[in-house]
Each structure stands twice: as structure tokens, then as C-alpha cells.
């Protein structure tokens, strides 16, 4: 399977850099899978799991909260506002994230931001359920 270069950077560090087969992005308008040779695309991300596949049947999940993905001929670059690898997630971290998202929901009055915060809370709850906490 053809591979492409993928980089996942958060403000604090570079989380992933290397060749991968496929990456599933939680884009704002629905999840999308990026494969090698994808057309140049730029998309905003919402809260959700980003799945990296570097070998068939071998996925790595990373929880991202907001950010951007840029696909061009050089590969895929994801600028995540916050990124937490699934294996580093604990119940405490998730609870804190949910609390933050809920506070963001309460703090804003704009419908768009309100909706974004609401879906972030829902996504985080879903993530919590998926990880059996």
C-alpha cells in the first residue's frame, strides 16, 4: 500500500512524524480518511479521535481537540490545538477535558461557538465511553 508523510504537531510537541498508510481525521463536516495521493485539502478539525494506520490492522488513536489539517503534495500536516494519545488518556484527564468543554459551552453565547462546544462535550463523553471509564 502506498504511504505518505504524516505529521501531527500540537503547540507543546510533535506527536507523530513518519510514513503512514491512512489517517482518519475528525473534520468539522464529518470524518474523512486521507490516503496517499489525496487532492490538496485544508480542513478544520473538531474534537474526536484521529486514527493513524501505518500497517493494516494496526491503528493508533489520538484524541484531538480542534485544529487544522493541511493536505498537499508533501503529505498531511495536522496542527492540533490539543492532542492526547489514547494510551496516555486517563479518566482524570478526560474528566478535566469534559469540564473545560462544558465551561466553554457556558461561557459563550454565539450559536456557532455554542454548537461547537456542545459537540465537543458529546465527543468527549463518547470517547470516555469508548475507553470504558
Amino acid at each position: 500500500m502506498a504511504t505518505f508523510t504524516f505529521e501531527l504537531v500540537s503547540p507543546e510537541r510533535v506527536l507523530f512524524s513518519g510514513a503512514v498508510d491512512a489517517v482518519v481525521l475528525p473534520a468539522t463536516e464529518g470524518d474523512m480518511t486521507i490516503l496517499a495521493g489525496h487532492a490538496p485539502t485544508m480542513t478544520a478539525l473538531k474534537t474526536g479521535f484521529l486514527v493513524i494506520t501505518s500497517n493494516p490492522g494496526n491503528g493508533r488513536r489520538i484524541l484531538v481537540r480542534g485544529g487544522f489539517a493541511d493536505v498537499n503534495q508533501n503529505g498531511l500536516t495536522v496542527l492540533a490545538e490539543r492532542a492526547l494519545p489514547a494510551e496516555e488518556l486517563t479518566q482524570d484527564i478526560l474528566d478535566r477535558e469534559i469540564l473545560q468543554a462544558e465551561m466553554a459551552y457556558d461561557a459563550t453565547n454565539e450559536p456557532a461557538a455554542k454548537h461547537a462546544a456542545e459537540s465537543a462535550v458529546a465527543q468527549l463523553r463518547e470517547a470516555k465511553a469508548a475507553l470504558n471509564f
Partner: peptide
């Protein structure tokens, strides 16, 4: 200057 390619934007360019 490497990218003359036409980008797909999702959502709209201005929104991003």
C-alpha cells in the same frame, strides 16, 4: 511557491 495546486476547503476558505 511549491503549491500551485487548487486546494479544497472544508468549510469555506474564508471561514477557515
Amino acid at each position: 511557491g511549491s503549491s500551485d495546486a487548487v486546494y479544497d476547503y472544508e468549510p469555506e476558505e474564508g471561514e477557515i
